[in-house]
Design a binder for these strands. Structure first.
Lengths: 262, 262
DNA sequence: TAAACCTTTCGGCAATGTCGAACACCATTC
DNA sequence: GAATGGTGTTCGACATTGCCGAAAGGTTTA
């Protein structure tokens, strides 16, 4: 682990998490480093456009370079590329917004977002991150993680985003067992009041979870006894289709085995 | 300039520019570094989710972390925040797609994208980067840069994206003079065949360019003698409105009207 | 089976980044 | 208007730190 690079990455994380603009003093305090150290790191990051300095206040923020990196990542993401063909159809069939996500640390990152097929104004959520324990997309992924990574995920601090958020390891453990048993995850207003989610895991080669796909929308539309079974089926079929594409993406034969598993 | 951080940033840039997946050997060759050096840097970046390693091939790509950083940048971008209110109206008035961009190195980064107000399927271009010399958005910014930065921009290699791209410093210099003279930039199929652009600069405090706003759409709609003058006026008015918001954004006397409301 | 590629590990040398203290600057306060 | 407390920044010496050559594991190719 290269110390200075590690520290630089920490600086980026701090700038990304906290208020948009931070001073050298505040950053060094948060990381427990000397001011000149932070200053040198910031100057280097600035040269690469990864951070920018406000000419007036002298404070620092993330720079434009991180956006173009993010865009490159999305463009090169195989999970995203493979899901494009299937998510459009899923959104049409379900009449709801579709998200594709992957796990990064303790949070889930939205890689792809298909708008709900109606004429309402909706904001694009690609790049947004949500604590894994507060959404169906996260449950679907973590439930199928190898044991060590799963317990690491469960060790995170489980903050409550709404009154419904499950914040005890016991409750989450039960939820994950249910996900494994049924092959899908359901979440009811645990991340946002009024919104629910239905998600299923996406597997890559060797049956490792690569991410998840799911519906996000008003709880009183998604979770009615009438709609729910159909929506679950639609999500699961989309997830399997993407998994198949992903497994076959490398051109070997294991993909066909995967689809036979369930 | 901290060497290892500089190299780490270079690695990210290489991963973002080239093919989605690269091996240690190839990266070290491109940067002229020893393989173990690159390996150590990659491992550190990997711990922060900034790069990810394909477990099968051992090759590296950008990691999910960069997307969430990119998203944080967009969320904290004052330019983007201030332009939200005006771009929607501009898109309606012009009937075309609106982009807001800022300069990062030799390229322009799309910070905000309002779809053309019709029912066609359009892809979201936020995060996309375009060589500054090939688009009106870039011309509008560079024309108003301080002299040293401007000549640095002109020193970049001016690759041709289409047959129409201006690739000589002389031609670009003339174009920039026109932009300064008239206060807007027009580009005709210099970045994409069939597409044109009309853009105007956005100024922050102290009259420094912070970015640009413009229309992007089919050349035969934007550049007709009938439509063109109106579109130019609409773009310029939007740019001025955003500039005004941006200049008053720091809470000085002009902003006190706002604060008096609360 | 052998060869040629890959990614990864190891260890010593010295170049490298770190940190304390002092600097210049600005906004506020008395 | 001078003084104060805050900021971001520069300097230089110490020793920690990260660099690279060579060699090791592993996997695909011939």
């Amino acid at each position: 682990m290269i110390q200075s690079v590690d520290r630089a990455a920490r600086i980026l994380a701090v700038l990304g998490a906290g208020p948009p603009r931070l001073g050298v003093t505040e950053i060094s305090a948060r990381l427990g480093l000397a001011k000149p150290t932070v200053h040198g790191l910031l100057r280097t990051l600035e040269q690469h456009d990864l951070v920018a300095q406000d000419p007036d206040t002298g404070k620092y923020s993330l720079g434009p370079g991180v956006v173009s990196l993010g865009n490159s990542f999305l463009g090169g993401s195989e999970l995203r590329a493979r899901s494009l063909r299937w998510t459009e159809a899923l959104a049409q069939r379900a009449g709801e917004a579709v998200w594709v996500a992957t796990l990064s640390g303790e949070r889930v990152i939205v890689l792809h977002h298909v708008f709900r097929p109606d004429d309402t104004v909706q904001i694009l959520e690609v790049g947004a991150t949500i604590p894994w324990h507060a959404c169906a997309l996260g449950h679907a992924i973590v439930a199928h993680l190898p044991a060590p990574e799963q317990s690491r995920a469960l060790a995170a601090d489980l903050v409550a985003l709404t009154g419904q958020t499950k914040t005890t390891r016991a409750a989450l453990g039960r939820a994950l067992t249910q996900v494994r048993k049924h092959g899908y995850a359901v979440e009811d207003q645990e991340a946002t009041v009024g919104d629910a989610g239905i998600a299923a895991p996406i597997f890559g080669r060797d049956a490792v979870v690569a991410g998840s796909v799911g519906l996000v929308g008003a709880a009183d539309r998604l979770l009615t006894p009438a709609a729910r079974p159909d929506l679950i089926r639609a999500v699961q079929e989309a997830a399997r289709a993407i998994s198949r594409d992903l497994g076959a993406g490398r051109g070997d034969a294991t993909g066909s085995v995967l689809s036979a598993l369930s």
